[in-house]
Computed example of a mutant assay.
Amino acid sequence: MSPDVEHAKRALRAELRERRQLLSEQQREVAASGITAQLDELVAAHDARSISCFLSTTTEPDTREFIIGAVRRGIRVLLPITRADGLLDWAVADDTDDVAEGLFGLPEPTGEVLGPIAVNDVDLMIIPAAAVDAEGTRLGWGRGYFDKTIGSMENCPPVYAVTYDSEVLDSLPRELHDQPVTGVVTPTRTLHLSHERP
Rank of each mutant, 00 (worst) to 15 (best):
V119H: 04
D123S: 12
D170A: 12
R19T: 05
P158M: 12
D165I: 07
F104D: 03
T36V: 15
P109I: 00
S171P: 09
A84Y: 03
V168I: 08
W90E: 07
L139W: 03
A130Q: 13
D4N: 10
A91I: 11
V5Q: 01
D89C: 13
V5H: 03
Y145F: 15
L88Y: 04
Q26G: 09
D89F: 08
T110S: 15
L103S: 07
V122E: 04
T188S: 13
E65V: 06
H7C: 00
A100N: 00
L169T: 07
L124N: 06
E112S: 10
T96P: 01
L42V: 06
Q26M: 12
R83W: 05
D85K: 06
L139M: 14
I35P: 04
D133Y: 10
Q27F: 03
A31G: 11
T63N: 13
L16T: 01
V132A: 04
R28W: 05
T163F: 05
H177C: 10
Y145C: 11
R17K: 15
V181G: 07
P157R: 01
D95F: 00
G183M: 02
K148N: 10
D178Y: 00
K9P: 00
V132E: 05
E112G: 08
S24G: 08
P158Y: 07
L176S: 10
D147T: 14
N155V: 09
W141I: 07
A70M: 12
V99A: 10
P3F: 02
L55V: 06
A45L: 09
D47V: 12
V99L: 02
P128S: 11
I117A: 15
L12K: 06
Q38F: 05
D89H: 11
D94S: 03
V181P: 00
R20G: 01
I35T: 04
S24C: 14
A48F: 04
M125F: 08
H177P: 01
L114K: 01
I117W: 13
L103I: 09
D98H: 14
L12Y: 08
W141T: 03
I81G: 05
Q38E: 10
T182A: 00
L42K: 07
V159N: 01
R197P: 01
Q38M: 13
A70E: 03
S194Y: 02
R189L: 08
L191A: 02
T58I: 00
E60F: 11
L114H: 00
R17G: 14
A91F: 14
D95Y: 05
P128N: 09
P116A: 12
L42R: 09
D62Y: 00
L124Q: 08
K9T: 03
M1Q: 09
V162N: 07
F66Y: 12
V71H: 04
L172R: 00
F146L: 13
T188G: 02
T182Y: 08
H46N: 13
M1L: 07
R28L: 14
E65H: 02
M1T: 08
R83M: 01
A129Q: 01
G34N: 08
Y160V: 01
L39Q: 05
V92I: 15
T57H: 13
G105C: 02
R72F: 11
W141P: 03
N120K: 13
Q179L: 02
Q26C: 09
R83E: 10
C156T: 14
S152V: 05
D133H: 06
T190R: 15
